[in-house]
Design a protein around this nucleic acid. Structure first.
Length: 256
DNA sequence: GCGACAG
DNA sequence: ATCTTGTCGC
């Protein structure tokens, strides 16, 4: 049912990514990022979108802000939105960013003191076709430090789900172990991280904006109670809960 | 025709 | 993203 994206649109998106890419800062810009224990860091944010099943345009845009290092909920915002852009692999940001930005702006307007010092994004940052994934996009447009955490490996820039990749995953002995995701040209675009002792499938961490890869990986690890970092996990859970309460299952086994 | 494809 | 139950384990 989803019509293929208009011809020129993807090209336009591509050039915009290339343009905005120049504004990404892939190093630590905040003092807390240089601290081994991130002293000075008090608030971490997480964003996500959850969809109503069967509808790929209506979704709940979610923002949560948690305390650090306690990871307790300080702020939460759920909002029903209607997406206009289609999902095109490599261009996720054009579909989701506008609504995540709006959530950050509502927070800035209502509770500026709760503005997160870093935002975890469900998706990739520099680990991307043109080194400008969702986490970079949101980072540049919001100006906030962002970290991209993807649950699945994006096969780009010469990174493949090869036997070698599988064996590297098997070699991750404990939570905190990781290995670099290196492009064909030799650049480290991100890291596969075993985020806890109990999880075996790694998460893929990459720089979004205003943070180094090293700090991004350390911070991700320190925010993981389970496989997915708590800010993203909370955003995901709460957005689904929001949909569950307002859009009860259309069908169930009760009929006959 | 088949596999890929962050969310 | 969503489609989806039970099941094994602590």
């Amino acid at each position: 049912m989803s019509a293929p994206p208009a011809e020129g649109l993807v090209q336009q998106w591509e050039s915009e990514q290339t343009r905005l890419r120049q504004q990404v800062l892939d190093h630590d810009t905040e003092d807390w990022q240089k601290s081994p224990v991130f002293s000075g860091l008090e608030r971490v944010g997480g964003v996500d979108l959850s969809f109503i099943k069967g509808d790929d345009t209506r979704a709940c845009a979610q923002l949560v802000v948690l305390s650090y290092p306690d990871l307790k909920l300080l702020y939460e915002d759920s909002r029903m939105v209607t997406l206009t852009a289609p999902y095109v692999a490599g261009f996720l940001a054009f579909r989701e960013t506008p609504f995540l930005l709006e959530a950050l702006q509502r927070l800035q307007q209502k509770q500026p003191r709760l503005q997160p010092q870093v935002v975890f994004v469900d998706g990739n940052g520099l680990f991307h076709h043109r080194e400008f994934g969702l986490a970079c996009h949101l980072g540049v447009l919001s100006g906030l430090p962002c970290v991209g955490v993807a649950k699945n490996l994006l096969q780009v820039q010469g990174v493949f789900k090869s036997e070698e990749h599988q064996s590297q995953i098997a070699a991750l002995q404990k939570g905190g172990d990781s290995f670099p995701l290196t492009s064909a040209s030799g650049k480290v675009l991100g890291k596969a991280l075993r985020s806890s002792d109990k999880s075996f499938k790694p998460v893929y961490v990459s720089v979004g904006h205003r943070i180094s890869l090293d700090a991004a990986v350390r911070l991700t690890l320190s925010c993981c109670r389970y496989r997915v970092p708590e800010p993203i996990r909370q955003a995901d859970y709460r957005s689904r809960e929001y949909l569950r309460s307002r859009f009860p299952a259309a069908d169930s086994g009760s009929g006959e």
